[in-house]
């Protein structure tokens, strides 16, 4: 059933409406899973996830127990124009949680989202990467909640689970707020901004059904899932540009490299020459690779998960 979570009147003949689709099976109050996405308006991977989860549940409704709430568009104005932030306000919605019930309009939106998800047994916040880098399917959990979340994160059929140290600003994210409220919450991330990778999406949806089975919400069959590489910040090698120019990768994303391999080059279109060759300083899996060609000093080119062998 489509429900309105929050609605606010915009200046000219339109409302900002946040909707959810509530799917209920047997014993609807037994368990509730919330799947949210579209906090960043330039990320569309979650659109496929919501569609596919709804499609599979409705196709096997007899196997479904409890409630799944799907929130495909938490930042509808941003999604409409592929703007990562909240248009006009130019702020990141995922830095505004838990919001304020009597605050500014968007603080009220954030508070309403928190209020609506509260009480769920699990919350998955699905992100694509931004438009700059491509990511393999991964779950990100903050160190603070890792012990509690890792058993669930492993079920999601992603290639990797990254437990990262929580920067202070992460305290303003939806998942942090939900975890603080006692709702186990994880970020699922894959692909690249403004695109949908159906293969990645289906892989994660398989994982979501595994998670639902574990939670007692799905009695139907589920396929085999892979177990992810578990990493901490210390095992992730960041490769950043040391120069300004245009980045041309020479490897594929999701590819094992060994120390000394060439990952790409930064070139000058004006001068027609290579400014810098990017060489891997450690061996591992390239789980992040730059898609957006223009780079400045400091731009992220790749991330390598070290300490694992090629399988």
């Amino acid at each position: 059933m489509i429900e309105e979570v929050f609605s606010v009147e915009l200046p000219v003949g339109e409302k900002l409406v946040i909707k959810k689709n509530r799917l209920t099976g047997k014993e609807p109050f037994s368990k509730r899973l919330a799947i949210v996405t579209g906090i960043h308006g330039d990320e569309f991977e979650g659109q496929y996830i919501c569609y596919e989860v709804a499609r599979r549940i409705m196709g096997g409704i007899e196997y479904f127990n409890g409630t799944v709430d799907l929130y495909p568009a938490l930042n509808p104005l941003g999604l409409d124009i592929a703007d990562r932030k909240i248009p006009k306000l130019n702020m990141d919605l995922n830095r505004m949680f838990p919001g304020k019930k009597n605050g500014t309009t968007m603080e009220r939106v954030a508070a309403a989202i928190i209020d609506d998800i509260s009480g769920a047994d699990m919350c998955l916040d699905v992100h694509a990467s931004n438009i700059f880098v491509k990511e393999i399917p991964q779950v990100r959990v903050s160190e603070e909640f890792a012990d509690k979340l890792l058993p669930y994160a492993k079920l999601l059929n992603t290639d990797m689970v990254w437990t990262n140290a929580s920067a202070t600003v992460h305290e303003s994210t939806l998942t942090h707020s939900m975890n603080m409220l006692g709702v186990p919450s994880m970020v699922v991330e894959m692909g690249v901004g403004t695109r949908i990778d159906r293969g990645y999406g289906s892989q994660v949806v398989d994982g979501i059904f595994h998670l639902m089975k574990e939670m007692g919400m799905w009695d139907g069959s589920v396929g085999e899932i892979q177990y992810p590489a578990i990493s901490t910040d210390g095992e992730v090698e960041f490769i950043r540009s040391r120069i300004t120019g245009v980045f041309l990768p020479t490897i594929e994303h999701n590819h094992y490299v060994t120390k000394g391999d060439k990952l790409g080059e930064i070139v000058s279109p004006l001068e027609g020459r290579i400014l810098e060759e990017i060489i891997a300083e450690k061996s591992g899996l390239v789980f992040t690779l730059r898609e957006y060609p223009f780079v400045r000093e400091g731009s992220l080119l790749a991330r390598i998960l070290t300490g694992i062998g090629e399988e």
Partner: peptide, 26 residues
């Protein structure tokens, strides 16, 4: 443009910065 570069980053949300971070951090 209020914020910096194609990444649209707020420099005043980047302090104290990082010597090896992204462009805005630097």
């Amino acid at each position: 443009k209020r914020f910096f570069g194609v990444e649209d980053m707020d420099i005043n949300r980047g302090f104290p910065g990082k010597v090896n971070g992204d462009t805005t951090d630097r």
